[in-house]
Nucleic acid binder design. Sequence first.
DNA 1: GTAGGCCAACCTACCGGTCGGTCGGTTACC
DNA 2: GGTAACCGACCGACCGGTAGGTTGGCCTAC
Lengths: 228, 228
Amino acid sequence: MSPTGRKDGEGERYRAILETAARLICERGYEGTSMQEVAAACRMTKAGLYHHIQSKEQLLAAIMSFGMDMFEQQVLVQVRDMPDALERLRECMRRNILLVTRDLSKEVTIILHEHATLHGEARDYIDGRKKRYVRFLETSFAEAVREGRIRAVDPTVAAFSFLGQVLWIYKWYRPDGRLTDEQIADGMVDLFFGGLAVAERQSAPGPRGQEPEAAPLTPVVPLFAGKP
Amino acid sequence: MSPTGRKDGEGERYRAILETAARLICERGYEGTSMQEVAAACRMTKAGLYHHIQSKEQLLAAIMSFGMDMFEQQVLVQVRDMPDALERLRECMRRNILLVTRDLSKEVTIILHEHATLHGEARDYIDGRKKRYVRFLETSFAEAVREGRIRAVDPTVAAFSFLGQVLWIYKWYRPDGRLTDEQIADGMVDLFFGGLAVAERQSAPGPRGQEPEAAPLTPVVPLFAGKP
DNA sequence: GTAGGCCAACCTACCGGTCGGTCGGTTACC
DNA sequence: GGTAACCGACCGACCGGTAGGTTGGCCTAC
């Protein structure tokens, strides 16, 4: 049994229902989507739909759980074993941004938007998985501070700033906009980790720490290709 | 008539209705709040409530418009005439964060959460006011770059990063949490404008060979056993 | 000073429609 | 002949919204 309340393995049809429902809920919101509409979009009657699911809220929980699976597989497990905390965080931000902007991820958008819709156990379960991510970020920031790779900042503030930049994107990003998702990812990683301060033109290696490749902090990123 | 569909200037009672409705909608979402509940919370019947408003959607539009008024008065007009672009942006971020965290601002929270709920003219009207703010930020960033106060970054990326950090707060901030809103405001302003790069007088990275024992991901217990 | 007019502010009762969800089948394939 | 997949018909509750009436306070007119 998976945490979504379904047997493992089977159910290509169930997957299809989840995806269809996710599309609708992503477009109209959870409360704004009726089971009638979900069933119709699945080319079924409502009774037929209820053969596969237990309730509307369990359907939402299953969608969110699937979204968390996607997120963990495409972001977390890809970066969590990187030894360098700073590089880990940069890659994490990049991957997370691209996950949000990719149009496949209606499930992720739903997780982000319907953050207070679930109740009870299902809510606790999803919140637990989210919190695990926050703790991962906090730990990584603390580690990067400890290693002297970044300034001493509060890891919680850093983690939620990171998340805010990355996750707010779902509210405004449009694939046909001026900026591509790659440009946004590059730009935000550069801004967040490179900072805004005017570069003191390298020279300064500091008193003792002369790690040659220890400072990839202010590089690159062409952008600035836009309006005033 | 303002685009929110109400004569100007009238009604202390109307204000009270807006505030009560805002409280409910903030707690349960727009679609999740019935007019019955709004009326009851105003100690009225539904018909009595409809004496004051035209429709549910117009009620939402009025709440959002009031929220935009609050925002513009407490943030925008307070900072827009500051001559120094960088200082203007710092003060703007600070004020915006405190606006979001202050419990008065259910209306602001609703604007943030229900970003795709309105339709038609009312939607255009609110979106227009939001876009003015984005343009104000972009312009200020561009100005700060031009004056050499900050590095050359894309003003759009900077503006949306700024907004993401600031506005995402509504999703996680709780007044009884570890961090006060003042600490969050100070921390985020420092992080965003101070950057993460190690200050040059500080010593550089310590011993490098150490394995970071990176961020153990504690397992989450799956739950809600399912149906068939 | 009070009779009468007026109107905002409410009410009860109700509208057609939809909500999430269920029941008792029927089909089609193993 | 068992069972997973599905359907038509239906449930009670509730949805946003309205029709039509009652109330009570204020403004005038005499």
